[in-house]
Amino acid sequence: MGNSEVVLWRSTTLRRDARTSWHARQATGLWLADHDPAVRSDALQIVAELVANVVQHVPNGRGRNWVGLRLGFGDGFVRLEVIDPGTPSPVPCFAPRQAGPLAESGRGLGIVACLSLRQGTRLLAGGRRVVWADVAAG
């Protein structure tokens, strides 16, 4: 599977609003324009799901109207990271739910888990949270 070290990063900070997922997909698509279409497709879906979670679940407000996006290239994988301003709960969490077949929400992290080699979350200074996923790139 290769080393899990990332050697090259691309990043941007997006304004948090109704179009944030679209902007995140655009940036990711540009960064992966020369990569295998399957890698690009999986990365676009993962980014859309992770950013949608931030927009839907992370409290908004003054100084919290942003979403960070990073994409890194490793040996045999592409790492996607979405950084948010944090939540009142300081515990990082990456736990796909078991959504029923007719549920309209709750499938996002399950989709991320299915499309990625590995995924997780960690906390940064100030309570900011990083949710990440690695996509196989051969």
Rank of each mutant, 00 (worst) to 15 (best):
P92K: 00
I111A: 11
A99H: 14
V91M: 00
P88A: 01
C93I: 01
L115W: 11
P101R: 13
G110H: 14
L115H: 09
E104S: 11
L102C: 02
C93R: 08
G100L: 14
F94L: 05
G110K: 09
G110W: 13
E104V: 13
P90T: 02
G100N: 11
S105G: 14
A99L: 09
S105V: 14
P101T: 06
S116P: 04
L117C: 02
L117T: 04
S89L: 00
I111F: 11
I111N: 10
P96G: 10
G106F: 14
L109G: 05
P90I: 01
S116K: 09
P101V: 07
P96N: 07
Q98R: 15
S89H: 00
P90E: 03
G100Y: 05
V91Q: 07
F94D: 03
C114F: 02
A99P: 15
L109P: 04
A99M: 08
S89I: 01
L109D: 06
R97E: 11
S105F: 14
A113Y: 02
P88W: 00
S116F: 05
V112R: 10
L109N: 09
P88G: 02
L115V: 08
A99F: 12
C114Q: 09
A99I: 04
L115R: 14
L109Q: 10
I111R: 12
A99E: 08
G108Y: 11
A95F: 00
P96Q: 09
S105I: 09
Q98L: 13
G110V: 06
G106S: 13
Q98W: 10
L102M: 03
F94G: 03
C114D: 11
R97G: 04
G108T: 13
G100V: 07
A99N: 12
F94Q: 03
C114W: 02
A103I: 07
S89K: 00
E104D: 09
P92W: 01
F94M: 05
P90C: 00
A113R: 15
G100S: 14
L109M: 15
S89V: 01
P101H: 08
C114P: 00
P96I: 09
L102H: 06
I111C: 11
L117A: 11
C114S: 12
E104R: 15
Q98C: 07
A113G: 04
L102F: 06
P96D: 07
A103F: 11
F94P: 06
S89N: 10
L117R: 10
S89Q: 02
I111L: 15
E104T: 15
G106L: 15
A113V: 03
P92S: 04
A95Q: 10
S116D: 02
G110L: 10
G108P: 13
I111W: 07
P88H: 00
G108S: 15
A103V: 06
P92I: 01
S105C: 12
G110T: 08
